[in-house]
Amino acid sequence: MRYIEQQTVVKRMNGRLIANAIFKYIFLAATLLALLALVILLFRIVSQGAGNLSIDFLTNFASRFPDQAGIKAALIGSLWLMMVVAPTSIILGVGSAIYLEEYAKQNRITSFIRMNISNLAGVPSVVFGLLGLTIFVRAMALGNSILAAGFTMSLLILPVIIVASQEAIRAVPGELRDASYGMGATKWQTILKIILPAAIPGILTGSILALSRAIGETAPLIVIGVPVIIQFLPAGVMDTFTALPMQIYDWSSRPQQEFQAVAAAGIIVLMAVLLFMNSIAVIIRNKFDKRY
């Protein structure tokens, strides 16, 4: 006896094919909807803010008057912040990655460190702000300085840099390592002369992406008390400062309609900085892709 009638199979086939086609377009539409959101977001911001973009906007300090408001202090402040965050987070991140990939034994402490890193990546940024407020601003008495903010941001992006660096180090072929050891090189020599140079493009790409996250973060800065109305440029890392997202936040939350356009102009500047950083990351990735 046959259980499957060829006629019913053929009869049902049409319905199944239609369902397949319908769902294909539903899935495609959903995907396009997500992309559309990005397009609308970018279009809105450019159309709102482009009118306020000018050289004056880049070179003026913040102001009570929308037409005089500028982003100079915030832009320079963000650059200062990066000058602290970049070396701190990269040294800590790459050092941790080298330890975990090259030195760590497979024991409980190591697996605890690994688990801890993945958990740390899931802590909300506002909580890192609370940590920075307690440890750097108050306990270490750094105040709301560039250094305090920089350390806080470094810890925030540390897990991202560690994971990216680990992947880059892991991608270095074992044969290179063996070749170096085979000539009698020590472990540290091998790491410094062979592994790190080979892993650096991956490490840089990951680090730049992490830094671009730090440059757009707002919540930790608010919590550690970074001000917005700043009429001078910082002269050192112990000075107080403001940053791009802080300035944008301040403008966005003002009731006057005119400041929204100023905020949009600020967002364009921020997005331009991010675009610049991401382009560098992509260029590095493409240039050094598939060397071995």
């Binding site: 997500a34 990005l38 977001l41 911001i45 709102q48 992406l209 707002t218 929204q260 991010l274």
Partner: peptide
């Protein structure tokens, strides 16, 4: 094509999203 665009969506700072929510 699509995956990098989704990555851009993930890389937009939350302050920008906040502004978008409030003003659009």
């Amino acid at each position: 094509v699509i995956k990098p665009i989704l990555e851009i969506l993930a890389g937009v700072p939350t302050i920008v999203y906040g502004f978008f929510a409030l003003t659009f």
